[in-house]
Design a protein around this nucleic acid. Sequence first.
RNA 1: GGCGCUAUGGUGCAACGGUUAGCACGCGGCCCUUUCAAGGCUGAAAUACGGGUUCGAUUCCCGUUAGCGCUACCA
Length: 494
Amino acid sequence: MATTQHLRVRFAPSPTGYLHVGGARTALFNWLFARHEKGTLLLRIEDTDVERNRPELVQGILDGLKWLGIEWDEGPFFQSQRLEMYRAAAERLLAGGAAFGCYCKPAAYAGGDAAPGTGEEHAGEGDDEGKALKAAPCPCRDLNDAERAARHSQGIPRAIRFRVPRTGVTHFEDLVFGAREVQNAEIEDFVLLRSNGLPTYQLSVVVDDIDMRISHVIRGADHLSNTPKQVLIYQALGAAAPVFAHVPLILGADRTRLSKRHGATSVGSYADEGFLPEAFRNFLALLGWSPGDDSEFLRTGELIERFSLGGVSRTNAVFDRAKLEWYNTQYLQKPAVEELLPYVEAELKRAGLWEGSQASGDRAWFARAVDLIRPRTRLLGDFTGWARAFFAEDFDYEAEAREKFWKDERVGGMLHKLAGALEALPEFNHDACDAALRGLAGAEGVKAGLLINATRVAIVGRAVAPPLFDTMVVLGRDRVLARLRRAVAALTSA
RNA sequence: GGCGCUAUGGUGCAACGGUUAGCACGCGGCCCUUUCAAGGCUGAAAUACGGGUUCGAUUCCCGUUAGCGCUACCA
């Protein structure tokens, strides 16, 4: 039925909050699907609720998508700029009899209060305790012309509701949940156009998806129950319904819907925390989707290549922060160092450690340093955190490190001698440093490990750091000697 | 309340009538080792419950329970 050959999908967030992980995953699935099928992805901002919208949040959503590497081909389109189209569609449905004017007081319809618009009770027919199995039709649907005119002249606000058939079933195809059908009698006469002239989601989403020739609607499963209403609108508008694919929701650790109280839930906060976009993408893709086998580490190209809506699960998934972190370590480890450099550079700049650092002027050195540090990192912040000494001279000696490895009172003297021995080395490389240190340890009658650990604290300030001799070579003789002597001073003064 | 969806270890996924129910994260142990990671090996840990159907159910059907969603002039 669909006249569109070309596959078109859209991500349609509402600017009532930041881009949260659930929305991000919906966007990701749309993007993966579009790229896999060589289709088109559009971005549409659904801002028809003037009360709740926060226009300033739009940029944050766009930034979040960009951070994730999700690029859209068309848009962003704003529904707030297309209001005439929805109004016209509502009028058309009204004129054709598929919709009717409703004069009920908002909320009164569902709540069962007296309705000023009609003077009638709106709870519906089956309000005999628990007998109301069916959705009650709006009493206004059967008003005659004279009654409507009377209400109009009284200035009673009018909304436009869809005249839902009292019988029959509505069905649609869902690529995740299968063929679905619901009894029309279960569907209430829902509002299309509010009395203030603004469309509801049900109307605007359908009008836009038709106008934008959307072929596949991929969205959260929270929309599953309302889909029949939209299918009814498609039919009334004489348009073919798209194929739907509802994806399960992402829940917090307590299995409830993700919200602010679950801590970091906006993608921006993960960016700030030092997660890599590709790691986040990999993690997100496997929440509610599986390539069909046990693959876990899928880079973006493979994700696109293997993505299929058929692999989407129907079960809600819990967001597992620990696993996200594991993915991040994997992406910090496995790719070529060069891929990581831009991210580390940005991190160093953020921390004000870029200018003046050897990293800024010596690309090869920068790559070596990052490669040495990264096996022990979990987040980008580690590069300016525990690994700060690689990029700055002002670093502190971690308290636990001092207590653990500088406890022996001979350390000061040995570090002093070590500095001398290293200074005398004809060549400052891994093996020479190794030999010099072990030789000294032997002469002093201590285990090499003791001196190695003490030296590590001296030159990087931490108990946990990369292998010592590699670190010394990357730092270079001058800095190592300076730090050794600085440590001796710190030890003897304390 | 009504309607609907879902149900494999703590978590994310495999097994799409026949497997000793697999993989990964996390957790424990061992190896490696210069701290800590990474890596390798390894251990504990699951088919919600009850009925069917079938030679045979994780898998198909029904019920129960639980969770979630929708039930707005929110999206």
